[in-house]
């Protein structure tokens, strides 16, 4: 475990906590895409199938449980919580994410490290995570303005991906058995998706204006 990977996990955890805090404190999920949250819950559920079979470390096991529990909690809040669900922008969150799920699953059947249930679902979760943010970015563009907590949520998510890429570069040069090409390539694609959001976020911060995404 290197510092880049640990920092990446922490920023990932912070991004989820920001979302939970925003929903809990404001009892509102305006500006948050339920579809992105559902995709993330699916990512964690399909990636951590090995939760009870392969024990890597206490840290890994605890973090996996935290990620699964928090992502399901967010989805539950947005779907079931009587107050929160009223503020969900159903007609803005129209990204057809079922096609994305299907495409990732087909890709995982074709491109995986080993053709076993666990490996196919792992590859599926890696591809799905790369595109899971799309409904959220589309919703932000649709709603035009980005409230600062949601903006920070996406910012921390981007930071987590960026730190993971640095972690892979570091591991590539320091370890002889480092082959996670599926995660690396998919991670690069995912970070690229954030790049344009970062650009507009930086512009809004620099010009001290409200973050506006071009429709």
């Amino acid at each position: 475990m290197n510092i880049f990977r640990f920092a990446g996990d922490m920023t990932h955890l912070i991004s989820i906590l920001i979302l939970l805090l925003k929903i809990y404190a404001t009892k509102s999920c305006a500006g948050i895409s339920l579809k992105t949250q559902e995709l993330y819950a699916l990512v964690f559920l399909t990636r951590y199938l090995d939760l009870f079979t392969d024990y890597v470390s206490l840290y890994n096991t605890v973090m996996k449980i935290v990620f699964i529990a928090s992502s399901l909690a967010i989805v539950w809040c947005m779907r079931r919580h009587p107050l929160v669900r009223r503020s969900y922008d159903k007609d803005l969150d129209t990204f057809r994410h079922q096609y994305v799920v299907l495409a990732c699953f087909v890709l995982a059947l074709l491109l995986n490290e080993k053709f076993t249930i666990q490996e196919v679902f792992w590859a599926f979760s890696i591809y799905l995570e790369a595109v899971a943010i799309l409904p959220q970015l589309v919703l932000l563009q649709r709603s035009g303005n980005v409230d600062n907590l949601t903006g920070q949520y996406v910012l921390f998510l981007g930071a987590y991906r960026g730190l993971y890429i640095i972690n892979w570069i570091y591991r590539y040069f320091t370890e002889d058995h480092f082959t996670r090409w599926i995660a690396c390539v998919s991670g690069l694609v995912q970070t690229g998706l954030y790049a344009d959001f970062f650009y507009y976020y930086y512009l809004s911060w620099k010009t001290n204006t409200k973050l506006k995404l071009p429709a």
């Binding site: 470390s57 370890e175 058995h177």
Partner: peptide, 10 residues
């Protein structure tokens, strides 16, 4: 040392 293919990241 992680052997090839062991998923030791999140």
């Amino acid at each position: 040392k992680t052997t090839k293919g062991v998923k030791d990241e999140l």
